[in-house]
Write a protein that binds this DNA or RNA. Structure first.
Length: 207
DNA sequence: ACCCAGGTGGCCC
DNA sequence: GGGCCACATGGG
């Protein structure tokens, strides 16, 4: 499987700790990253990027921090719920939490309020260092336009995983590149101008 | 004054 | 199994 290396290494995910990856993954749902960064800064300023601290913070305080990301009531609740659930599971030690087998941790994450497939898989890949590829809206559109493949999350995920080298770093890089590409070319939305159209020649998936 | 963003859960059929 | 809706702010 070959993919555009036109943007170079992305060294994703932009976060300092495992917990910060999880927070970012929830906050970025249906939201642009700059807004998430604002919210993360707010949380950091209040020392809330700490599981024990966040789990016991009043909702109103969290509302204020995550306000810029939209859906702020929902997201604040999800953040605290997930944090509490994680604390119960691993007492705040995420390295231990991710030591269990991939499928087991995945089911565990999916059972939490506010964590669906994409969020779970992003967390598993970037915080847990697990071999799994998150499929976002960009990926689905790209597969549709370039590979002429349409399908649901599970189908696209397994299709790509059969074609990719089994390396975590490749998974991390691919997901990052797809998002980066979408930002730069406005394929994220409907293409608005001719030069923003995806050029199939640039993305020939081979092997 | 629209349209969209690195989704998720609930409800309906 | 899918289709539709609420959730909400900020940027184009």
């Amino acid at each position: 499987m070959k993919l555009l290396n036109m943007y170079g290494r992305q060294h994703w995910w932009p976060a300092r700790t495992k917990f910060e990856v999880i927070v970012g993954a929830i906050l970025t749902q249906q939201t642009t990253w700059p807004n998430v960064e604002l919210a993360i800064r707010n949380l950091r300023r209040r020392r809330l990027l700490n599981m024990h601290k966040l789990a016991n913070t009043p909702m109103k305080t969290i509302y204020g921090c995550v306000y810029p990301t939209g859906f702020y009531r929902q997201k604040a609740k999800r953040l605290r719920d997930v944090t509490r659930a994680l604390l119960k599971k691993c007492d705040g030690n995420l390295s231990i939490y991710f030591k269990r087998p991939l499928e087991e941790v995945r089911l565990d994450l999916l059972a939490m309020n506010g964590i669906g497939k994409e969020t779970a898989d992003s967390i598993l890949l970037y915080a847990g260092n697990k071999m799994i590829l998150p499929v976002d809206a960009y990926t689905l559109r790209l597969m549709e336009r370039v590979e002429r493949r349409r399908g649901n999350y599970d189908f696209i995920q397994s299709y790509l995983e059969t074609k990719l080298p089994r390396e975590i770093s490749v998974y991390k890089e691919l997901h990052a590149l797809i998002v980066e590409h979408a930002k730069r070319t406005c394929t994220g939305a409907k293409p608005r101008c001719a030069k923003c159209q995806v050029n199939p020649c640039l993305y020939r998936f081979s092997r």
